[in-house]
């Protein structure tokens, strides 16, 4: 087997995550789908690291994780705040910018 299959898998997971972001209304699930996309990217980075034989790809994946962690912290805080004020976790209810 060639490690390129990992890349196919990463592409597939990324696309599924993207589709999830588009179809789900619950902000928490949307967030999970974003995490899924980030993880798919990490898989691709790790695979590239293996293909090229150096550790830079893993470093990037590591930083991705750190940034993702930060993002989750802030994002979930936003969701909680939003839920407090609007009593909803639906992204469709965050529409104050609409005309």
């Amino acid at each position: 087997m060639n490690p390129v299959y990992y890349l196919y898998l990463a592409a597939l997971l990324f696309t599924i995550g993207a589709a999830g972001v588009l179809v789900r209304k619950n902000a928490i699930i949307v967030f999970m789908c974003v995490e899924l996309m980030l993880n798919a990217c990490n898989l691709a980075f790790v695979t590239f690291s293996r293909l090229h034989g150096n550790l830079d790809g893993q470093i990037i994946a590591f930083f991705t994780m750190v940034v993702a962690a930060a993002e989750v912290v802030v994002g979930l805080a936003i969701i909680v705040t939003f839920f407090r004020s609007r009593h909803s976790a639906s992204v469709d209810d965050a529409d104050l910018m609409k005309l």
Binding site: P3, Y8, L12, S49, R50, G53
Partner: peptide, 24 residues
Amino acid sequence: FGVLLIAGLANAHLSAFTGLGAAN
């Protein structure tokens, strides 16, 4: 998006890989 991404990967012909033996 998915088809484009996978088609692009398929066209890259990544048959050879180095492996992490040396790096690790």
